[in-house]
Amino acid sequence: MKRSPLATLLLSLVTLLVFILLYGPIFIPIVTSFFTVKYGSVDWSQMNLDAYAKLTGNEGVIEAVENTFIVGLSAVAASLVLGTVIALHCNSGKSRSRALLQFVVFLPFLMPPIITGLSLLIFFREVSIDRSMLTIIIGHTVFVLALVYRTILVRLQGIGFSMIEASYDLGASAPQTFFYVLLPNLKSALIGAGVLAFALSFDETMITILVTGTQNTLPLRLWAMMRLGFTPDINALVAIILALTTVMVLIAARYLIPKDFAGADA
């Protein structure tokens, strides 16, 4: 069907508007981070990096960055190991217990984060685990596990059983098959899932705010700073975070999108 020029024009205008709506809130803090803000209005006359310099002296922020990386990397490691184990198990056959396990893994992804967060909060209190970095890491792992598991499972299904059977036929043990046959084939899925999980963890706020003790991650730190009011170093921090996120998105896209996807119907 050929679309009429008028329809195409209207559709592209709406698309343009949506792009502005989606990217406006991202670009405004980046742009203003290079200028001085006084009494709520931006002084456009000269660019400077004052806000960035001020940020390096902000200890709370530096600690929050450290915490965010510790939590993110730990959650990625835990979810990759657990996700791989569960995917290998669920891929090895069909049973009611496997279906149930898969359902449980997906629950935190289906339910609103407030429910995952609150259930963990109550659980930690009842089993007397003090809220700490560990509880944040558990919360994040539970949250990203579904996505990691799903990514690995899809790749495993793509590999099929013939390669695994061939490996066993040639006399390889289970660990040998895993390390020499499966792992190399899973590598790009693991990297992609890991980066995506890190990006999710990096941004996770609702579960974190419920299961944290006194530790701040970056989103929590930003949340606290923003409630107090406007300071230029928030914008500088925002710009840095967005730059980091962009890099992560690019890496994830490179590993997760199949090579022929871009030209699928060209």
Partner: peptide, 10 residues
């Protein structure tokens, strides 16, 4: 994937 808090704030 871009920070949710930041967008909300902006």
């Amino acid at each position: 994937l871009m920070s949710y808090i930041i967008k909300m704030y902006a």
